[in-house]
Amino acid sequence: MTRNQTIATLFALATTAIAIPTSPSFAFSSEAQQMCSGDAMRLCSSEIPDIPRIRACMVQKKAQVSPGCRAVMDREHSAATGSRKREAAAQ
């Protein structure tokens, strides 16, 4: 894996983690990598390699991300919110 591929994977992981930082079943998707790596590199490259800072940067700059990345972020946020609600209801 090249350095750029490694960085892109790191960004994809951080980008996906934006919406689901507390989910126990966390796994970043290839869709998130495809849709958000460019945005993460463009908007948050100064935060490498600190994943929490990349995550915070992407959330802060969500209005500037591409429509595809925003859709992934929104979908994963909705899924995480639903999961947390189900966990709370089960308790």
Results as ranks from 00 to 15, higher is better:
1 M>S: 09
1 M>V: 11
2 T>E: 06
2 T>Y: 12
3 R>M: 14
3 R>P: 14
4 N>W: 12
5 Q>A: 13
5 Q>P: 07
6 T>W: 13
7 I>N: 05
9 T>N: 08
9 T>L: 13
9 T>Q: 11
9 T>F: 04
10 L>K: 09
10 L>P: 04
10 L>M: 15
11 F>S: 02
12 A>T: 09
13 L>T: 08
13 L>C: 14
15 T>S: 12
15 T>N: 09
15 T>C: 10
15 T>M: 12
16 T>C: 08
16 T>L: 07
17 A>S: 12
17 A>D: 03
17 A>W: 06
19 A>C: 07
19 A>E: 11
19 A>Y: 06
19 A>S: 09
19 A>L: 04
20 I>K: 08
20 I>Q: 11
21 P>Q: 10
22 T>K: 11
22 T>Y: 04
22 T>S: 02
22 T>C: 00
22 T>P: 04
22 T>H: 09
23 S>F: 10
25 S>P: 00
25 S>M: 13
26 F>V: 12
26 F>A: 15
26 F>D: 12
27 A>P: 01
27 A>W: 04
27 A>K: 05
27 A>C: 05
28 F>Q: 08
28 F>P: 13
29 S>K: 03
29 S>G: 14
29 S>Y: 07
30 S>T: 09
32 A>T: 11
33 Q>Y: 10
34 Q>S: 13
35 M>C: 00
35 M>Q: 10
36 C>M: 03
37 S>E: 04
38 G>T: 07
38 G>Y: 09
41 M>P: 06
42 R>D: 15
42 R>A: 14
43 L>P: 13
43 L>D: 09
43 L>Y: 12
44 C>H: 05
44 C>S: 05
45 S>D: 03
45 S>K: 02
45 S>I: 00
46 S>P: 11
46 S>H: 11
47 E>I: 00
48 I>W: 06
50 D>F: 02
50 D>I: 02
50 D>L: 01
52 P>W: 01
53 R>N: 11
53 R>D: 14
53 R>V: 04
54 I>E: 02
54 I>P: 07
54 I>S: 05
54 I>Q: 01
54 I>L: 04
56 A>F: 00
57 C>F: 03
58 M>Y: 00
58 M>V: 00
58 M>H: 01
60 Q>H: 14
60 Q>M: 07
62 K>Y: 01
62 K>T: 02
64 Q>V: 02
64 Q>N: 03
64 Q>M: 14
64 Q>K: 10
65 V>A: 13
65 V>P: 09
65 V>Q: 05
65 V>K: 01
66 S>Q: 02
67 P>D: 07
69 C>G: 01
69 C>M: 01
70 R>C: 10
70 R>P: 02
71 A>E: 08
71 A>V: 12
72 V>T: 13
74 D>K: 15
74 D>N: 09
75 R>G: 06
76 E>D: 06
76 E>N: 08
77 H>A: 07
77 H>K: 06
78 S>V: 07
79 A>E: 13
79 A>M: 15
80 A>R: 11
80 A>F: 15
80 A>S: 10
81 T>P: 07
81 T>V: 05
81 T>C: 06
82 G>D: 15
82 G>F: 15
83 S>H: 09
84 R>L: 05
84 R>N: 11
86 R>E: 15
86 R>Q: 10
86 R>P: 13
86 R>H: 14
89 A>Q: 14
89 A>G: 12
89 A>P: 15
90 A>F: 08
90 A>H: 15
90 A>I: 07
91 Q>D: 10
